[in-house]
Design a binder for these strands. Structure first.
Lengths: 201, 201
DNA sequence: CAGCATACATACTATCTAGTATGTTGTCAA
DNA sequence: TTGACAACATACTAGATAGTATGTATGCTG
């Protein structure tokens, strides 16, 4: 294994990672490319070598980071649970418990981008819609499974429930931004728990 | 009644109103003062005569417009209902039905500002928190009333429910921005209806 | 009606920002 | 070993933007 002073894939990934964090904290329009590269070990030349425009950076973040982050955070762990409904609640609880206080003011990166960019950029809108759809789809799969396994009432509209769960989770993060503590997160968790209990058999 | 060529209160209100619409559509940071005054019958001089900075304009919008808009839209109409729970659902339904398709991509002005400005401006954050708190407070008042009148189970945590309702409503508007139709609005409405039915006596 | 503060309009500026132009260095293949 | 091209670095630019400087008109007050 030879040490290389250049590693393009790593450089690109590094820029993406830093940009993701900066955008998460300052918003896409609120952060400048200068600010991003200043947090980086590379310069503006490298940045524009990999991303022809700022928008392309944003699209790459959605495609190459956000999608995976969402799935790994909310969906992948559900595999481990016998009753997916329990899985959804347990994971939600765990995510709230382990949320860093310092991150609470910044909400959910997906929701942030949806709110900021959907109305002003159709490509962003479409890409973000795809992420949301996938998130809901996967949730629905597990909800259907729960229904088949007899954990959930047969008359529950699985699509509607999947949409509602994702909405609830996003919403609690959204309002959390304006208070800075976990009030809304726990409130949302307990309400969702009650609701799911009412739908369970 | 004398016709005046100058009417400072009206001018200020006019600027506020136009700015509110522009910010609603483009975001606070996304809209320029030039863009706002271009939609106005006055010029930049007038703008800075009334608002010393762009931030002050934003604060004024929250204090003088947003607060009232929220209350009149979501709270005031609840007076007319015997069962406040029915009121909340009926109003929500009505608001969804009468929502203009052209506005769907732009979400809720309050939620938009929370998402965009809370993390980057503490004064915005505090003002927006106040609006949200008031909205929840008022909702809780009606929920308590419903409980006292025997429409709602006694063991329901009224604060938690009020928070959940507001979260649900905001969330549905938030995700609507990325699809452009009323799917999430209706989904949210029907889920909330089911949930409230489960809590009703 | 004189004069003065308020209510505007116009023109300008400093700064920030996305993007470019151009230069330099590392790597790899022939 | 040597081009040659990718992978960067540096310096610059055009446009946008918040805010200012300054000027003018309106209407009220004494």
């Amino acid at each position: 294994m030879v040490k290389k002073s250049r590693n393009p894939e790593k450089t690109r990934a590094h820029i993406l990672e830093v940009a993701f964090g900066e955008i998460y904290r300052k918003g896409f329009q609120g952060v400048s490319i200068d600010a991003i590269v200043n947090e980086t070990s590379v310069t503006k030349g490298a940045f524009f070598h990999y991303f022809p425009t700022k928008q392309e950076l944003g699209y790459a973040i959605v495609d190459e980071i956000l999608n995976d982050v969402i799935l790994e955070r909310w969906i992948t762990p559900l595999k481990a649970y016998k009753n997916p409904i329990n899985g959804i609640l347990s994971r939600y609880k765990k995510i709230i418990e382990t949320a860093e206080d310092a991150d609470l003011p910044f909400g959910c990166p997906l929701n942030n981008l949806i709110q900021e960019m959907s109305p002003v950029d159709p490509i962003f809108k479409e890409k973000l819609r795809t992420v949301i759809s996938l998130w809901i789809d996967k949730n629905e799969e597990y909800i259907k499974k729960a229904q088949e396994l007899g954990y959930l009432k047969k008359d529950v509209d699985t699509r509607q429930l999947a949409e509602f769960i994702v909405m609830t989770q996003e919403a609690s993060y959204g309002l959390t931004k304006t208070v800075g503590d976990k009030t809304f997160l726990w409130s949302s968790y307990h309400s969702l728990k009650k609701y799911l209990a009412a739908l369970s058999v």
